[in-house]
Design a protein around this nucleic acid. Structure first.
Length: 589
RNA sequence: GGGGCUGUAGCUCAGUCGGUUUAGAGUGCCGGCCUGUCAAGCCGGAGGUCGCGGGUUCAAGUCCCGUCAGCCCCGCCA
């Protein structure tokens, strides 16, 4: 019985139609005489009625089927009897009266059900992912992912981009993460690296005159996992020639707006607001602020400097900062609530948390006695604090003040319900630092990668203060999630050399690691730049999920295992021999 | 590598201060009844290595130690 219609698409207008449906048994309700089966295919669910007078044979088959059996039904669409319509179902006005039925394939009793409301442990879902993916939630996520991919391809094609595939077997790229290595059989002892991104390759494509390149590129990194990090992920890799930062911003904004419109029918406001890295750190303590709510960090260092409170004064004297946030209406927090917030701040590296509750008449604080009336008034003024507000302050090194207050701000934002879950608030964060100091290794590292173009005003800082050199590098942030990074690249050899000098990469090392790229740059390289939005994270936001695994068909666990297949698994000894690989494993047990 | 949470029936969970018979509930599964349900209903039944190993104790699902797995976070990583 070959399918002529789809379950979820039948409507009142189809009444009288003879249809053949193929699908799975979602649920079965056996009334002895009458049997109802909710039949499911990718399009949705429709109720099938098995009535003995209509077909004794079909009814007999319906008696035998069980959840997740695959079946075919031949029947007629009819309007449901008055009063039995199901308003919760798009197909709820109609049902199919079965004249003929066939079991295409029986099914074992499923290990879990997605039909009821209970949420199944992810361990079980991942082990039986092929069943999990049948659920409405996962089907919607896969569909949205597909639509987002199509919207991306459609938009960029319209804009004149070419999709170019770059190799998966390549050479270590300078992204800083650990590489996945693949041994070469024909070249014993040599290894390919799986690309952490097509960064170098897309720059080479600019040298090649492609001018506008994109790729839904798989990127691989052998690092530990998180809710938003998998060993392999997909990015919308984009590179353009003869462009400036603004060109990439405009393109990305229109791309995002297009994707949001095409997938979830949301109008993203463009252009996106912009904020420098320095400003983001100052106002929010993070380079990826969630600007759906305010609660900005307020600097009190100047007040703290002269106060009697030893911890504040000493911290400032040692080059630290005192900053804080205002939690509106939390002035009545109990001692234990404050203690709990203090613990929270300590988990995020702060030494402690100083609180001040504003009342009609005074400012209450465990530390109040160390401050003059005037100082307390200044603090309250700076926050424009009203009676009933709570001010939370951290004194420490700038990095720690930023990090702990960022966590605290997001925590309080959630608690106080300041975040509109239906809002999308994109943001450009610009002028990232070019270099970051590695305290452990006592050297400068590339903050992004070593091919980012420095800010034109900052060249004189290369010798004097590399940490202050800004890059023409930017992130696109959405609701506090970093969705993508990009930069204008260096296309001139002399500038590249200046960057290598700071990074301590001598000509010999440069030649060994990316000589092929530097050589390419000598043969006529256009100015170019690009961006790489993370596709999984983008889809995650479209789906309203807060975990990247929910938008990937077959994700891995935190230990980078695939619970369904058991990968990774030991290699066949013959295969290892052929690769000239001997294992040297740590002793077990 | 480190911190936190979790692990009891296929699934979701309860199990008090260490002690009441055979470790419970809902759901699912199996069987029976049932012609308008849509989480169908009613009756009956099966189903357990309390993650695993060790220890304390007269007695351990419960306490202690170790270990494994999943999740969240730090480190790491755009």
């Amino acid at each position: 019985m070959k399918r002529t219609a789809h379950c979820g698409q039948l409507r009142a207008g189809d009444v009288g139609q003879e249809v053949i449906l193929n699908g799975w048994v979602n649920r079965r309700r056996d009334h002895g005489g009458l049997i109802f089966i909710d039949m499911r295919d990718r399009s949705g669910i429709v109720q099938i009625v098995f009535d003995p007078p209509t077909s004794e044979e079909a009814h007999a088959i319906a008696t035998e089927v069980r959840p997740e059996f695959v079946m075919a039904v031949h029947g007629t669409v009819q309007r449901r009897p008055q009063g039995t319509e199901n308003p919760d179902l798009p197909t709820g006005d109609v049902e199919v009266i079965a004249g003929e039925a066939e079991v295409l394939n029986p099914a074992e009793t499923p290990p879990f059900s997605f039909v009821d409301e209970t949420e199944t442990d992810e361990l079980v879902r991942l082990k039986y992912r092929y069943i999990d993916l049948r659920s409405p939630r996962m089907q919607r996520n896969l569909r949205l992912r597909h639509q987002a991919a199509q919207a991306t391809r459609g938009f960029l094609t319209q804009e004149g981009f070419w999709e170019v595939e770059t190799p998966i077997l390549f050479k270590p790229t300078p992204e800083g993460a650990r590489d996945y290595l693949v041994p070469s059989r024909v070249s014993p002892g040599n290894f390919y690296a799986l690309p952490q991104s097509p960064q170098i390759l897309k720059q080479l494509l600019m040298v090649s005159g492609v001018e506008k390149y994109f790729q839904l590129a798989r990127c691989l990194r052998d690092e530990d996992l998180r809710a938003d990090r998998q060993p392999e992920h997909t990015q919308i890799d984009i590179e353009m020639s003869f462009v400036e930062q603004d060109d990439i911003f405009r393109l990305t904004e229109r791309l995002f707006a297009h994707i949001f419109k095409e997938t979830i029918n949301v109008d993203l406001p463009i252009p996106f607001p912009r904020m420098t890295y320095a400003e983001a750190m100052r106002r929010y303590g993070t380079d990826k602020p969630d600007i759906r709510f305010a609660m900005e960090l307020t600097d009190l260092t100047d007040i703290a400097e002269g106060c009697e409170f030893e911890i504040f004064r000493r911290t400032v004297a040692q080059g630290g900062q005192v900053k804080g946030i205002k939690a509106e209406g939390c002035g009545d927090y109990s001692r234990s609530q404050i203690d709990q917030l203090t613990e929270f701040a300590k988990v995020h590296k702060a030494q402690g948390l100083v609180s001040m509750a504003v009342t009609e008449s005074e400012i209450k604080s465990p530390m109040a006695k160390f401050f003059t009336e005037e100082e307390l008034g200044q603090i309250a003024d700076r926050y424009q604090a009203k009676a009933g507000d709570l001010v939370l302050m951290v004194a420490d090194k700038p990095e720690i003040v930023a990090e702990s207050l960022d966590w605290l701000r997001r925590e309080m934002g959630h608690r106080l319900g300041l975040i509109d879950e239906n809002e999308f608030a994109p943001l450009w964060v610009t002028e990232f630092p070019l270099f970051a100091w590695d305290e452990g290794e006592k050297r400068w590292d590339a903050e992004h990668h070593p091919f980012c173009m420095p800010h034109p005003d900052d060249f004189e800082l290369f010798q004097t203060d590399p940490g202050e050199v800004r890059a023409q590098a930017y992130d696109v942030v959405l609701n506090g999630v970093e969705l993508g990074s990009g930069s204008i690249r260096i296309h001139r050899r002399d500038i590249q050399q200046q960057v290598f000098d700071v990074l301590g990469i001598d000509p010999e090392e440069a030649e060994r690691r990316f000589g092929f790229l530097l050589r390419a740059f000598e043969y006529g390289t256009p100015p170019h730049g690009g961006i790489a939005p993370g596709f999984d994270r983008l889809v995650m936001m479209l789906c309203g999920e807060n975990n990247i695994r929910e938008v990937m068909a077959f994700p891995k666990t935190q230990r980078a295992q695939d619970l369904m297949s058991g990968a990774p698994s030991p290699a066949d000894p013959d295969a290892l021999r052929e690769l000239h690989i001997k294992l040297d494993l740590p002793p077990s047990e």
